[in-house]
Simulated assay, not measured.
Amino acid sequence: MTDPTDGRADVLSALLDRRSTAALVEPGPTPAQLDTILRAATTAPDHGRIRPWRFVVVSGEARARFADALEDGGVARDPDLPAGVREKLRSKAFVAPTLVAVVAAPRPAKVERWEQVASAACTGYAIVLAAHALGLGAMWKSVPFRTGPLLRDLLGMGPDDELLGWVLVGTPADPASVTGRPEPDLTGLAFHLTAGGALTPH
């Protein structure tokens, strides 16, 4: 008989062992892996089931278009952006085989906007966890700006949409770099509320 706790242990291992890594090389995720990753992203907490998010997968030669959009967004934020900074922005599109842009797309609903954006942010973490569970490396990246004419057009963003960043996905250059996270220290992070209204350390 299969132990029903086995799958739960796998989930906990993914949560506790995962590390971000920016050193990612080919191959990127297969179509089947990518489909699994995106499906996992849709399991994020979603009050009202309104799915206030959207994903845009960027890989291969399409990364050049994303590089253009990142540069355009930087220039929209600062018209005097130095050439070196522009090139650095462009380079962000090529550091992994696949990028999954996470766009918060709040919808008219009783659910407050902040909660919809929080739901979208959760999808990014789900993407990272799913990639790790599949044996891939992943890292969430962002830039100081979240808009720009070309960036908004390229990602199909509406007037209320926000780019929350993108998740790099690929094969870890060093497999050992994505596991073995140090034991987490909860000091100063976790507390218990007592019946008397005081906070005590976990």
Rank of each mutant, 00 (worst) to 15 (best):
A176G: 03
L38A: 08
H132L: 02
V169D: 01
G73E: 01
A131Q: 02
D17Y: 07
A198I: 01
D17Q: 15
V57L: 10
A120W: 00
P79A: 13
L129Y: 15
A93P: 03
D6A: 14
A118L: 12
E112T: 06
V103C: 01
P159M: 09
I50V: 13
V167P: 01
P108C: 08
T5S: 15
S119W: 01
R63G: 11
H202Q: 13
P27S: 04
V167M: 00
D153F: 04
A104L: 06
D174N: 13
A44G: 08
V143I: 15
L34M: 09
T30Y: 12
L199E: 12
G188N: 04
E115D: 11
R49F: 15
P184N: 06
A44V: 11
G28D: 11
E183S: 10
L193E: 15
G148T: 08
L34W: 04
G170P: 07
V85Y: 02
P31H: 05
P106K: 05
P149F: 12
P97R: 04
G196E: 15
P144W: 02
V167N: 00
A101P: 02
F145T: 04
V167D: 02
A67M: 10
V100H: 03
R90I: 00
P4W: 12
R152K: 13
W53L: 03
D35E: 15
W140Y: 08
P29N: 08
E61A: 13
A109I: 12
L189E: 15
G170Y: 00
R77Y: 11
F66R: 01
A9F: 12
A138P: 02
D174K: 10
A93C: 02
T179L: 01
G197L: 02
A118N: 05
S91T: 03
W140T: 00
P108M: 08
E61P: 12
R63S: 10
E183A: 09
T42G: 05
T5Y: 14
V25K: 13
M157I: 03
P79T: 07
T200K: 09
H132Q: 04
D10F: 06
G60P: 03
L189Y: 07
P4I: 07
V85P: 00
W140D: 04
A40M: 14
T30H: 14
A126G: 13
A131E: 03
A120T: 00
V95G: 09
L189D: 12
A69I: 07
V128C: 14
Q33Y: 09
P79F: 07
D185P: 00
A67Q: 07
T147C: 10
L12I: 13
P159H: 08
G158K: 03
H47W: 11
A190H: 15
G84E: 15
R107H: 05
S119Y: 00
T123Q: 06
L89E: 08
L193N: 06
T194W: 03
A62N: 09
P79I: 07
A131G: 07
P52W: 03
W53A: 01
H192W: 14
G60R: 05
L16G: 05
P149V: 09
R19H: 10
R86F: 00
F66T: 00
